[in-house]
Design a protein around this nucleic acid. Structure first.
Lengths: 232, 232
DNA sequence: TCTGCTGGATTGTTCAACAATCCAGCGATC
DNA sequence: GATCGCTGGATTGTTGAACAATCCAGCAGA
């Protein structure tokens, strides 16, 4: 979910014996942002809804200024839209946004898979594929969705780039917000479950070009489907 | 500079006759962020420098809370680093950051150029190349740097993706901060001036694969050079 | 030399206030 | 009846002050 944040206490340089872990105590503003992110992902807050500073502040028992800080963060992630002097609204799908999001995904996912990755990272991709299979067997729609996100997240993680990871996390958060569950009718799943398997196999076999092509084809098709469902 | 922001008043949907332009009056916090971005790009604030809220607030004649908001924005862009309870510092180059940044650039630049673009967008790339030539003739080091940034920005703009554009703008801002002028010794320039020309020609000729390969090679070499100069 | 304390400085957060802006409603006018 | 202008209420933008929490450097003492 908020996978974009937890790498802040990365310390490649090990301090002698025990690496002091720097006990992460999120600030209040961060916790507010986290809570809002959660509500957005879960569909409590639907696109277009207006968020009033005072209301949220009171609901969460924090100061209006703190809420403001959280808003700024989420606006930076494109989850909220700030309209000066009017208020902040949950982001809505504008014309071209679907294409835009998929353009980003094509860029970073295909590039990542084409460069390959360490065995551990590849294993993580495999794990996501298996996770999807298990969810399918268990008829767990919820689980299928997140398995798919894990799959694509793991692909980007191949590149071992913090920046790409956070970009991907943000894009996935956007997609969760826009395409919330509704569009995940089970008839899609059979398609990409098999396809993820294929992509993963190609990756494991070192056929990076083919893996990239398959992934690209998938993303193109997925964009078409989403565009067909929601407006252009 | 802050090319990441001005597209906020985009209105594809034209309102009947006169499109109301929505007179952009940046909020105070935004102006503070803008000022800091400027000072960062210009080298007034060097990596590692500490920014004290109260000081900046007084210097710019704004409230501490407002400075805080600006800090949050810049921290989101990775230009500042927030260390809880300690303060905010100008971002410094950590181990692996160079590779990380170039990984992002490879992903989005190569992907963008491989997909080609409209004639107008291609013309913009050409314009950046010519801008570089002129700067070279005039021995304008400053101009050479920004021409190069325009070139790579124009390449990403081929994809016509707001999201990719802002990502690229942020990456370029990071590079301005880290590699500020110092590393731009003129002997590099002859290299990539000719190379930009080649890439642009290939693009104009529709030889997208070749253009992508050239660009990729350039980015790899550039990464090596930067890594050689700064630490790993 | 190490330990532990302590005071000062800075950040994190809250609160209250006020200016600026927007919006809906409501007459007044043509 | 539609348009214009006003007005009042609500919300945002920004400020200033306050206080708790945290960090850090310096210092006293073992």
């Amino acid at each position: 979910m908020a996978g974009a944040d937890q790498e802040k206490n990365e310390r490649a340089g090990l301090d002698s014996a025990r690496a002091r872990v720097r006990m992460r105590v999120p600030s209040v503003a961060e916790r507010v942002a986290e809570e809002l992110r959660y509500q957005l992902a879960e569909g409590f807050l639907v696109p277009g809804a207006k968020l009033t500073e005072a209301t949220i502040a009171e609901d969460l028992g924090v100061s209006r200024n703190t809420v403001r800080e959280a808003f700024a963060e989420l606006a930076g992630e494109r989850l909220l839209l700030r309209q000066p002097n009017k208020g902040v609204y949950v982001a809505t799908l504008e014309a071209g946004d679907i294409h835009d999001v998929y353009t980003v995904r094509r860029a970073i996912e295909v590039s990542s898979i084409r460069a390959g990755g360490s065995p551990e990272r590849i294993a993580a991709v495999r794990a996501a594929v298996e996770e999807g299979k298990r969810a399918a067997e268990a008829d767990d729609n919820e689980g299928l969705g997140s398995a798919n996100q894990h799959f694509h997240g793991a692909i980007v993680a191949l590149a071992e780039s913090n920046r790409l990871d956070t970009i991907m996390a943000q894009v996935l958060a956007e997609m969760r917000l826009y395409f919330h569950k509704a569009t995940l009718n089970a008839h899609f799943y059979s398609d990409w479950l098999a396809e993820n398997e294929q992509i993963c196999s190609a990756l494991e076999a070192g056929e990076l070009e083919r893996a990239g092509d398959l992934l690209l084809a998938y993303l193109n098709r997925s964009e078409q489907q989403q565009t067909a469902i929601h407006g252009a």
